[in-house]
């Protein structure tokens, strides 16, 4: 493998890791506040569709982005209603939302565009364009660093940079602000937060609203950045991989970045090479597909470090009377 191929694989890794990272951070906020969210997939899918649809109709990708975030937040709100207000089962609510997104997107796409559950291809203006960072063209011919800067760091859409900036921002919000401290507390010991006179319901709703925005960005990136338009089931299990990355990262932002890059790399390699011939034996492409899930199970099993979820995760908070 020569240098340029390596750069290209890494470039593709960054692209593929972006939606995982945004969804993973969404899950991080939600689960740190004690709300388990297996509806990441559904929220991303809904956002992907509404972004592409509105971007196509209005011709503006920014309108599309807003619509995607709104759709994702609407799903978040249903999840909050079910799991916070009515103290229902958070897992079941997440499963329901995934199915709802999978059905509703195709239903509306068919009704609006009549193209078998997809949106028409987005033209320029309807999707995010790559940004060439300053000096990228000039430095292109510098050996090693030039291609590295031009191919790998420059030339992505804005949402990629936003996703990567979200990592330090998430770390800062969760670990350096009062809001973050309370949010983490409400996921570990909601009764203590309640005793201190802070609203458990309010904090948890705040967390899932943030999760909604981040999932909206992730979905919007899929249909207006990574690809030009929506196709049915285009999230293709990314929400679940993000969930896996979250566990892999043990619910911490910087680890989430590395986990998502690792899973992105696996996807990029699987996409480029199909079956990998190592001479002695061949790694079939299905192994690459399954590897994120297998790694997560290994981590969950506690053989490689222990993944301990927030203590109050999944349990509705009932005030004592």
């Amino acid at each position: 493998m020569d240098f340029l191929t390596l750069i290209q694989v890494l470039d593709s890794t960054v692209r593929l890791a972006t939606p995982l990272l945004l969804a993973c951070l969404a899950g991080l906020f939600s689960e740190r506040s004690g709300i388990i969210d297996i509806g990441l997939e559904g929220k991303m899918l809904a956002a992907a569709f509404f972004s592409a649809a509105i971007a196509y109709v209005s011709g503006s990708v920014w309108m599309g982005l807003l619509a995607g975030i709104a759709a994702s937040m609407a799903f978040s709100f249903i999840h909050g209603l079910a799991s916070i207000t009515f103290r229902g089962n958070q897992l079941i609510s997440g499963v329901a939302l995934n199915f709802l997104a999978s059905g509703v997107t195709v239903l509306i796409a068919q009704d609006w565009f009549g193209q078998g559950g997809r949106t028409p291809s987005l033209l320029a203006g309807g999707r995010f364009e790559p940004i060439t960072l300053p000096f990228a063209e000039a430095l292109r011919d510098v050996p090693v660093l030039g291609p590295l800067y031009y191919e790998l760091i420059s030339g992505h859409t804005i949402l990629v940079y936003v996703a990567f900036l979200m990592v330090p921002l998430t770390w800062w919000v969760l670990f350096q602000t009062r809001f973050g401290l309370r949010l983490r507390a409400v996921g570990e010991a909601p009764e203590a937060v309640d005793t201190a006179g802070v609203s458990v319901v309010g904090l948890r709703f705040a967390a899932i609203v943030i999760a909604g925005v981040l999932c909206g960005l992730a979905g919007s990136y899929l249909s207006t950045g990574l690809q030009a338009g929506f196709v049915r089931e285009m999230t293709a299990g990314r929400g679940y991989i993000a969930l896996a990355a979250l566990i892999f990262a043990k619910w911490r932002p910087w680890y989430a970045l590395w986990a998502c890059l690792l899973f992105g790399l696996l996807q990029a390699v699987a996409l480029r090479y199909q079956n990998i011939d190592l001479g002695a034996f061949v790694i079939p492409v299905q192994v690459m597909d399954a590897l994120p899930y297998i790694l997560t199970v290994v981590i969950l099993a506690g053989f490689v470090g222990r993944a301990i979820p927030p203590r109050a995760g999944g349990e509705p908070y009932v005030k004592e009377r």
Partner: peptide, 25 residues
Amino acid sequence: TNIPRELITVIQALVILFTGALDNM
């Protein structure tokens, strides 16, 4: 009709939502 099969997925989702998650409602 013009109703795609995915309508059933939506109904399925609503049934899970109402009988499972929004039970208390």
